[in-house]
């Protein structure tokens, strides 16, 4: 039993650490804020998840659930914060429009006659504000 758990940890720890490192690398290398979000999300979900599960495998029974709880919590909250940061980045021109191959949200905003954020004061449209 211990051997199996040790093997699980031996696989998950380096994998999680590697994803943390790759996420940090992406955070450093990607060109604009919105792209960096992807890298951050990866370190936050995959990296931490793997490390925490690996740690839980080594913990005495009482503490393992708490670690899994942290992992679950992170899995639930990381998307919310990155979604909010992404939305804010779009509205405050935190992304480089020249790097986008296509921007279908801008297409719609233009169709609706709403000025694009970054060119004018960012305007809230009510239907997106739910």
């Amino acid at each position: 039993m211990t051997t199996v758990l040790n093997a699980v940890t031996a696989v998950l720890f380096p994998a999680g650490a590697a994803f943390c490192l790759l996420g940090a690398l992406g955070l450093l290398r990607f060109p604009d804020t919105t792209s960096r979000l992807h890298a951050a999300a990866k370190a936050q979900t995959l990296g931490l998840l793997l490390v925490l599960v690996g740690a839980a495998a080594q913990m005495p029974g009482r503490h393992a659930p708490v670690l899994l709880l942290v992992a679950l919590f992170q899995l639930f909250t990381a998307p919310i914060s990155s979604q909010i940061i992404g939305r804010t980045a779009y509205r405050t021109a935190g992304l480089d429009r020249d790097l986008l191959l296509r921007d279908e949200l801008a297409d719609r905003l233009v169709r609706d006659g709403i000025p694009l954020p970054g060119h004018d004061r960012p305007q809230r449209d009510d239907d997106a504000e739910r």
Partner: peptide
């Protein structure tokens, strides 16, 4: 949003649209 490579930027509830930044 949870899967890397896609982040939802904006949700249009009324028209049932998601706007996704894909990497």
């Amino acid at each position: 949003t949870m899967t890397p490579g896609t982040v939802v930027i904006e949700i249009d509830r009324r028209r049932k649209r998601l706007y996704v930044h894909a990497l």
